[in-house]
Design a protein around this nucleic acid. Structure first.
Length: 476
RNA sequence: GCUCCCUUCGUCUAGCGGUCCAGGACGCCGCCCUCUCAAGGCGGAAACACGAGUUCGAUUCUCGUAGGGAGCGCCA
């Protein structure tokens, strides 16, 4: 008996898909998936001035990277102008809309006056009941079409996240639904589309709350029931200030470039304004199963990169190495590294997962396993490649050269044995060796570092470090 | 200015009248582990914006105040 759930994400292509939009899209997606419903993508491109094909592409790319697949669309409003014109004519015929000849200057003058008087600026309804076009200054020949909003009564609706919201019709005025050239405006097209597309739940940013009552009046004028509404709060930047295209908003693709996994971003986003007890990590299926739009918070929330970092690492650690490797490959390409020049990326992930927050970081820290380095880090060399390291490097070098199988367990045993024989701590062997192998004082545990560096490369680098130590000893 | 909306640790949040001298997570601090850096384990500091009601009892309900946000477009 219940209607099929149909949700839509309806961005306007005036920029990239940022995290706020991505979260709205995610909520729409989850709502649909949770109810075996349909998720629709609709591009609201009626503003010919600001919409661009590049933005459409950017939004589509963002959706794809996040894996928010839609069942219908993308629909484009610019391809539906005939339909809007048809509905405008219908309202005109039924007397539910009328032509308004007021000039922008006249409207502006009224607005200023009302503001000065401390009132809310509204259209004064001059053309609402005219028999024929008005003449004189203040009026133009080509009219806009205004919706005849009810004067009496109050619009009350039950918002899925805010609860009951009511606004008196006295607060609303007759909004323009079509421009002189016939092109429709937002508050009108959104109603026609949501109606035509059978949308059951409109999930959108809370900046639309104030538009909702006037849209509801249009639904009624069209003789239709309005869908349910869910207004989700916006996302603030790290600094608590509003996240917008002008301030700090970055496209979701930037997160890919910075080394985040789409799963991690999605997980982070779903927890912004929504929770399920104390649970922090949700697989896609768990999100679908547990998400409810009714559980979404009312408060705006600030984006916290530290927590995203943590989640990203959780995913890097817990996802199958092979899966992480697929994403890592892209970063290798960006960095000009070829995975074929070193250990398998899955092996690399298995040892680096604990040590990095992002794939970009992993790539940077893994460079020496795939390519030679020019110089030792000055600080590391100064501290660890001292004359006293000669003995350690010689000993470990010759033992490693004799090793038949290059495996972590054996490598670990060799290092330990060498330390015991020389009667020194592990650090006295491992640190010079680490600098010899990677050029730096920081790397995975020494056995794993040897393993990933590989036999030939390791032996060559130990020899090179030995040479460096000898030259340095001779110089002093 | 007018209308609508919001308000628990620094941040994300749990809480749906007594179970709360408020729980979890990130971050931060300390200890442990340790070949470096991490990861991990253990512990710690840290919040109900304020004021009135309602009630035997308010973080939880109501109303104000303060602060914040949004809208008031021939943008979406």
């Amino acid at each position: 008996m219940t209607k099929e759930v149909r949700t839509r994400f309806a961005p306007s292509p005036t920029g990239f898909l940022h995290v706020g939009g991505a979260r709205t899209a995610l909520f729409c997606y989850l709502q649909a998936r949770a109810h075996d419903g349909t998720f629709i993508l609709r591009i609201e491109d009626t503003d010919l001035q600001r919409s661009t094909p590049e933005s459409v592409r950017a939004i589509l790319d963002g959706m794809e990277w996040l894996g928010l697949d839609y069942d219908e669309g993308p629909y484009y409003q610019t391809q539906r102008f005939d339909r809007y014109a048809e509905v405008v004519q219908q309202l005109l015929n039924e007397g539910k809309a009328y032509h308004c000849y007021c000039s922008k200057e006249r409207i502006e003058a009224i607005r200023e006056e009302q503001m000065k008087a401390g009132a809310k600026p509204r259209y004064d309804g001059h053309c609402r009941d005219l028999d024929q076009p008005p003449q004189g200054s203040g009026f133009v020949a080509s009219p806009v079409v205004r919706f005849r909003n009810p004067i009496q009564g109050t619009v009350v609706f039950e918002d899925l996240v805010r609860g009951q919201i009511s606004i008196s019709n006295g607060e609303l005025d007759d909004l323009v639904i079509a421009r002189p050239d016939g092109s429709p405006t937002y508050n009108f097209t959104v109603v026609v589309d949501d109606l035509d597309m059978g949308i059951t739940q409109v999930i959108r940013g809370d900046d639309h709350i104030n538009n909702t009552p006037r849209q509801i009046n249009i639904y009624h004028a069209l003789g239709a029931e309005h869908p349910q509404f869910a207004h989700v709060p916006m996302i603030l930047g790290d600094d608590g200030a509003r996240l917008s295209n002008r301030h700090g908003a970055v496209g979701v693709m930037q997160y890919r470039d910075d080394g985040y996994l789409p799963q991690a971003l999605l997980n982070y986003l779903v927890r912004l304004g929504w929770s399920h007890g104390d649970q922090e990590v949700f697989s896609r299926d768990e999100m679908i199963e547990k998400f409810s739009i009714r559980d979404v918070n009312r408060k705006a929330s600030a984006f916290n990169t530290d927590k995203l970092d943590w989640l990203n690492q959780q995913y890097i650690k817990n996802l199958p190495n092979e899966e992480v490797a697929v994403h890592l490959q892209w970063h290798f390409a960006q960095a000009g590294l070829d995975p074929a020049d070193g250990p398998s990326l899955a092996d690399l992930v298995s040892v680096q997962a604990d040590r990095v927050k992002t794939l970009k970081e992993m790539t940077q820290l893994s460079r020496s396993f795939y390519a030679d380095f020019e110089h030792f880090d000055p600080g590391a060399a100064k501290k660890h490649l001292r004359p006293v390291a000669e003995q350690a490097l010689r000993a470990i070098g010759s033992r490693l050269a004799d090793l038949s199988r290059w495996e972590p367990e054996r490598l670990d045993a060799v290092v330990r044995l060498t330390a015991e024989e020389l009667e020194v701590g592990m650090g006295k062997i491992a640190q010079p060796l680490r600098v010899a192998l990677t050029g730096t004082a920081v790397s995975p545990s020494i056995d794993k570092t040897l393993w990933l560096t590989g036999r030939d490369r390791s032996l060559a680098r130990i020899a090179r470090a030995l040479e460096y130590v000898l030259i340095r000893a001779a110089a002093s």
